[in-house]
Design a protein around this nucleic acid. Structure first.
Lengths: 355, 355
DNA sequence: GTTAGCACTCACTCAAATAGAGTGCTAATC
DNA sequence: GATTAGCACTCTATTTGAGTGAGTGCTAAC
């Protein structure tokens, strides 16, 4: 069977109606729409076909139809084709938040946290953002300073002005000159490298370069290299916002699943892994604009099988890349989410280009 | 009417039974308890008295009784008297988590986040912790370093090794000597002060001390003072964990209130304000061990009126103080929560004394 | 003061009755 | 051949009413 124009119109109408109301859509409701000038009986026939083709189903015999994953997929693919319209529609709505974002570009964490909130409030779905993976980010400079007799502060600044502090303890006594020398040494050796690139060889070279200091310096370097390597779990943060928005969608809240779903948002490590994988996969995918849509069964996380997930990758330079995700019911307003997401990405990009 | 010994026994029995089951308690159930060797009729008479006195109520005519806020209040006050027993009971259970806490004392944020999680997991209620108010914390030292031509990194380390970074932009050109001089100047003037104590006068003095540099330095100081003053909202963080635990208590999840309650945990600013006020009020209250219990209507937040809140203030030195809160149903296991909280406080204190 | 006994209340459960929305099919119509 | 009107049918959701059981309050006896 073929998906002719009228079938498409009907399918889209079903999806749009279901998006609004959350109720199964009947033939009579559709027949009343202005762009469908046929009787309900005709529509029933078409719906029967659409069901056979797998785009819609009946929750029970005497109910209207609701879209299947396949139905949503068709709809989403359809929007994606005419995406540019959707963007402009939403852009204005967000500008009022611009100052919020531009205010403190220097603290990426702060920006991301607020973007998550902004997305959640604007879309009425749940938002999450994975922070950039510092390990892939280039070191801009390192500053070593003395805090106490045996405690040193190592402040590392990465591209994008992401700052990372560590406190290290050394047993050896260090005079001011030692510290400033090591400082110099660290900067000449490490600047421009990513954490991943700092391996044993770099450290060894550093030590040999240290020359006369090597006995004292050795310990500092050991501490630093350790501080630089034991940090996988913390580096990649995930910020979430609006998890409670799911209470606005009855189909997600009835049953036991509600708790499971809300709990899923507290499991930051799973979210992180998921977003990380998506980022890995589509980071350099220019064709999709870095935007992906996952519907129902397509979701990587089992507990979210009743939801849809829209993701977008941001990339503001080496190492400063991550993924934004919006989670909502399958009947989420894809137009709006896609538009909002694009708009936010664009603004973020501008903000970071300036900085 | 007077609360004689038998009435107390019955009241406590009602509360304990209701804590376990969440079901209204009837006279027959109570008559079967070993420590009540009287008939159900007698108990009915006593319960009638207790109801008249306001300690218990019937949800409806033909149901058992449940405790009122006043009933819980009596019970909690009773436990608080014999608190020391409760502590020791729980202490062992928590030791396994000790390494988790001691691992990274240098990052207070990290510790607090994990303590919140630990409390949530251990109690099965929702936990929250307010971070310390940096504005009241003493500056240990300040480190100024150049990031880019016109960008400087100001790293401020406070007592308790809490680190705060700011990036400031200056239009004037600075040579290395300027930076190290300003650095010296900042440290001699600001070390030992709290943010609150850094007022216009301090800044003015700093400027006059700057002497010959004043033209160039002026801008840096202005930037720094600004960076030091515009940060109220961020400084006081709140970490939450286990909000979804409330799904384990049906009386909290039925009705519309469930969503409201869960949402309340996303409103960090309100939580922050509440914990801040509690901290303010009981910070130096040695008598209560810094522990407070709020039941139902006593809660400062309207949306939590069906819950109880147990709070404890931590204080590990000047400025490093905050408040921990546990939120659960009114029928929460106060014994356990109080014990767990005390145990955690003790461990935290030890951890910080060492560092 | 305590207890046994009994009438009474009220929530909860279950089943049957009812209403309503929607479909599929058939036969008539364009 | 496509469209439509009409009708029987299906299934959910809502209502109703009877029955059940837990629990109380009261009274009279111990």
């Amino acid at each position: 069977m073929e998906l002719d124009e009228r079938k498409v119109t009907i399918l889209k109408a079903i999806i749009r109606s279901y998006m609004e109301t959350g109720e199964p859509v009947g033939s009579r409701t559709l027949s009343k729409l202005p762009d469908l000038q046929v009787s309900s009986a005709t529509i029933r026939n078409e719906m029967s076909d659409l069901e056979e083709m797998g785009y819609i189903v009946q929750p029970h015999t005497s109910a209207g139809r609701i879209p299947t994953d396949k139905g949503y997929r068709f709809y989403v693919d359809e929007i994606m084709k005419e995406k540019s319209d959707a963007i402009r529609a939403k852009e204005t709505e967000l500008t009022e938040y611009k100052d919020l974002m531009t205010r403190r570009v220097d603290k990426l964490e702060y920006v991301l946290r607020h973007v998550a909130k902004l997305l959640a409030v604007n879309t009425n779905y749940a938002a999450m953002i994975s922070g950039p993976n510092s390990r892939r980010n280039r070191i801009k400079f390192v500053q070593l300073s003395r805090m106490e007799e045996h405690k040193l502060l190592v402040a590392t600044v990465f591209e994008g002005n992401i700052i990372n502090n560590r406190i290290i303890t050394v047993s050896a006594g260090l005079v001011e000159k030692d510290i400033s020398d090591i400082n110099m040494l660290l900067n000449t050796s490490l600047t421009g490298l990513t954490m991943d690139e700092i391996n044993i060889r770099t450290i060894m070279k550093l030590r040999s370069d240290a020359g006369e200091y090597s006995e004292v310096v050795d310990q500092v370097l050991t501490e630093i290299s350790e501080a630089f390597s034991n940090n996988e779990e913390e580096e990649l943060e995930v910020y979430t916002s609006g998890a409670t928005n799911i209470f606005k969608y009855p189909e997600l809240t009835e049953g036991v699943a509600a708790g499971m779903l809300i709990e899923q948002f507290e499991k930051k490590d799973e979210l992180r892994r998921m977003l990380g994988e998506i980022n890995e996969k589509y980071r350099s995918d220019v064709q999709t604009d870095g935007i992906q849509v996952y519907i129902g069964e397509e979701l990587p996380l089992q507990d979210m099988k009743d939801c849809s997930l829209v993701t977008a990758n941001y990339d503001f330079g080496p190492g400063i890349s991550g993924t934004i995700g919006i989670v909502g019911p399958k009947r989420m307003n894809y137009d709006k989410v896609l538009g909002t997401l694009k708009s936010v990405m664009k603004q973020l990009e501008e903000t970071f280009k300036e900085a």
